[in-house]
Design a protein around this nucleic acid. Structure first.
Length: 351
DNA sequence: TACTCGTGGAT
DNA sequence: TATCCAAGAGT
């Protein structure tokens, strides 16, 4: 059986050979490490990498990010999801730039106070940028530790986190703890996957789950939320090459721009749309697009777009006023941060 | 604590 | 097709 020390040594040796050459691994700049960690929250590397490169290119320093207009930051984040990450990223950049003199906090305790920086991200920055020996725990680490050490506690229950932390604190080296943390995650992501490659696993012979054939049981995770069906009807008004949009302020897609919409929980209510449209003169339903399925986590959207031509300027102004919508040219629409379902639709629609 | 918050790839 | 879930955090 491996002692903790030999486990750590083997892991880091493995990592030094197989690790990918990722841009944030080339730098000790806490800004770049922070940026990469925020982008990679609940996000695969393949999906986040192009966003990381665009952010670094547009905002090379925390000061550049702090001074950028929020709409530019949101636009750069467009399509990545979990948009509160972008709002917190921008807000925290401003705090660091203006209140902390551009100097990044350097300890876990200070880092975890920042907006958008929780236990995982604070540990990641502290270890990778500043050499503090604090373990990270993410989905990969939960899975790997749970299987190898036979921790059967429910990982969905926050109070069980301490069992994992105790094990990791014994393993993490004082020298280069950041590499250890990345190696743990890399192992969970590439070998000890949800469906694990035990055949090629270095640690197979001393693995609890392998020995007891519990790879499919561990980690134990309760909590499953059902997905709801929701129905969105977007009304795309157009008058002489301009359209009407608003910035969302509530629930999903906060801060992004959308068309006026009518939502239902019980299927598409055609009559409701017809009734709404009957309240205004000079409207022509130019095109009704076929309903599109748009799958989100815990939510299945059925989306229908209506392209509505407004033939009178007065009606257009009335709609704008009544519905709290602002006027944009189609060119301007492309510069607004929008939810993916709208981006996708406008790419396909030909007006 | 339980729920919310996106998008997309893997199985 | 359905479900899982990914370098989680805020409320």
């Amino acid at each position: 059986m491996n002692t903790p020390h030999s486990f750590t040594k083997s892991l880091i040796s493995w990592y030094s050979i197989v690790k990918r050459d990722l841009p944030w691994r080339r730098s000790n700049d806490p800004y770049k490490i922070w940026l990469s960690e925020i982008i990679l929250q609940q996000t695969r590397i393949d999906q986040g990498l192009p966003y990381y490169n665009r952010f670094v290119s547009l905002f090379p320093t925390v000061g550049d990010l702090a001074e950028a207009p929020s709409q530019t930051v949101m636009k750069t984040w467009e399509g990545l999801g979990y948009y509160s990450r972008a709002r917190n990223l921008h807000s925290t950049a401003q705090v660091i730039h203006t209140e902390l003199g551009g100097i990044f906090p350097s300890t876990y305790a200070e880092l975890v106070k920042l907006k958008g920086v929780g236990p995982y991200t604070a540990a990641a920055i502290a270890s990778m940028a500043f050499g503090e020996a604090t373990p990270v725990i993410d989905g990969n680490v939960f899975r790997f530790v749970s299987r190898y050490f036979g921790v059967e506690a429910d990982i969905a229950d926050q109070k069980n986190r301490k069992f994992f932390m105790e094990i990791l604190e014994d393993l993490i080296p004082q020298s280069d703890p950041g590499t250890f943390n990345q190696a743990m995650m890399e192992y969970g992501a590439t070998v000890c996957k949800p469906s694990p490659d035990c055949v090629s696993c270095l640690f197979r012979l001393s693995c609890y789950a392998y020995k007891h054939q519990k790879q499919q049981v561990l980690p134990v995770k309760t909590k499953k939320v059902k997905s709801k069906e929701v129905f969105f009807s977007y009304l795309i008004f157009e008058h002489e090459g301009t359209t009407l949009m608003r910035q969302r302020t509530e629930s999903i897609w906060t801060g992004l721009f959308e068309f006026h919409n009518i939502t239902h929980e019980q299927g598409l209510q055609e009559e409701q749309i017809t009734h709404f449209l009957s309240q205004y003169p000079h409207l022509i339903v130019h095109q009704k697009f076929e309903p599109v399925q748009h799958i989100l986590t815990h939510r299945k959207l059925w989306v229908t777009f209506y392209h509505i031509e407004v033939t009178m300027k007065d009606t257009f102004r009335m709609l704008s006023k009544d519905l709290g919508l602002n006027l944009y040219s189609w060119e301007e629409v492309l510069t607004l941060p929008r939810p993916k379902v709208i981006v996708n639709h406008l790419q396909q629609a030909v007006f």
